Simulated scan of single mutants.
Amino acid sequence: MAFLEKVEETHGLKECLKTGLQALTQQYRRKIRARDSRKINGSIFLEECVNGRWDYIIGYNDKTFFVEIHPVKTSEVENVLDKLFWLRRWKENTPFKDDSNFFWLSTNGVGILKRSSYWKKVHKQGLRIKRTLNLE
C-alpha cells in the first residue's frame, strides 16, 4: 500500500499531512536529506496529530520513515525506547503495522559509543541512531 493510502486509511492522520517536510520545524528539516525531493510523499507531526509520543512520520518514494529527533545520550535511551514502544503499539492497528524504518536523529551530536551496551540495546530494538537521515 502506498504511503498516502496508508495516511488516508488511518484515523486522524489525513488532516495532519503536510507537503514535503513541512511538518518538521526548519531546524529539523536540515536533518533530513532526500536524494530526489520530488519523491517526498509528505510528513506528519505524529506527536501533535494523535497526542502521541513519537515525533514524525515521513513518506519517501512510498516508503515510511518513523523519525524521533532527540538528544542522543545514554541518559535518554530509556525515554526514547519508551517512545518507540508507544509507536509500535499505536501502529499495530493501522496500515503502517508492517513498516519498521525507525530512526533516532540527534539534536546535537551522538553521546553514545557504538560498542556500548546502550548502543546495542537501541539497535536490538530496530532503532537506528543517526545525525542526519538520507532518504533514498
Rank of each mutant, 00 (worst) to 15 (best):
Q125T: 11
D62L: 01
K6C: 11
K18N: 14
E5M: 07
E15A: 11
V80S: 00
L13T: 06
K121G: 07
F96I: 08
P71K: 12
L133R: 03
W90K: 02
K124R: 13
L81T: 00
V72F: 04
A34S: 14
V80H: 04
E15L: 07
G59S: 09
I32K: 03
I129N: 03
Q26G: 05
N79F: 08
L13Q: 03
K39P: 01
K97E: 11
F65I: 00
V122A: 09
G12T: 10
G126E: 10
K97P: 00
L21A: 05
Q125V: 08
L13H: 01
K124T: 13
K130F: 07
K73E: 14
D98P: 02
A2H: 06
E48D: 14
K39L: 15
K97Q: 12
A23C: 09
L24H: 04
K31N: 08
L17K: 05
C49V: 09
K97F: 12
F102L: 10
L84D: 01
W90T: 08
L21S: 02
R30G: 13
R88N: 09
T10Q: 05
I32E: 08
P71H: 08
C16I: 00
W90A: 06
R33N: 11
T10K: 00
N134G: 08
E92R: 15
S75I: 13
E136F: 12
W119E: 07
R115F: 15
T74R: 12
K120V: 05
F3D: 05
T94D: 04
E5D: 13
Y60Q: 03
Y60V: 03
H123C: 11
T19I: 11
P71Q: 13
L21T: 02
Q125R: 12
K14T: 10
V80L: 03
S116F: 10
Q27A: 10
G12S: 10
V77D: 02
R131Y: 10
E68G: 07
S117Q: 14
H123L: 10
D55F: 05
E78K: 15
N108Q: 13
F103S: 04
R53E: 15
K121Y: 00
L24Y: 04
N134S: 11
E48I: 01
R115V: 15
T74I: 10
C16D: 08
K130N: 09
D62P: 00
N108P: 04
K83E: 11
S75V: 12
I58C: 06
Y56W: 11
T74V: 13
V122R: 03
R89L: 12
L133G: 01
K6Q: 13
T10P: 06
I58T: 02
E68Q: 15
K18E: 15
M1A: 11
I57N: 03
G111S: 15
N101W: 08
W86H: 08
R30L: 11
E78L: 11
L4G: 02
R128Y: 13
W54R: 03
S43Q: 07
L127T: 04
K14I: 01
C49G: 07
V67T: 08
W54V: 02
I40N: 05
E48R: 14
L133D: 08
A23F: 02
Q22I: 02
P71E: 14
Y28K: 12
K63N: 14
G20V: 03
Y28I: 01
L46F: 01
L21R: 00
T74H: 06
K73T: 09
K6S: 10
L105P: 04
R53L: 15
F85V: 12
R35F: 10
L24P: 00
I129R: 05
L87F: 06
I129A: 04
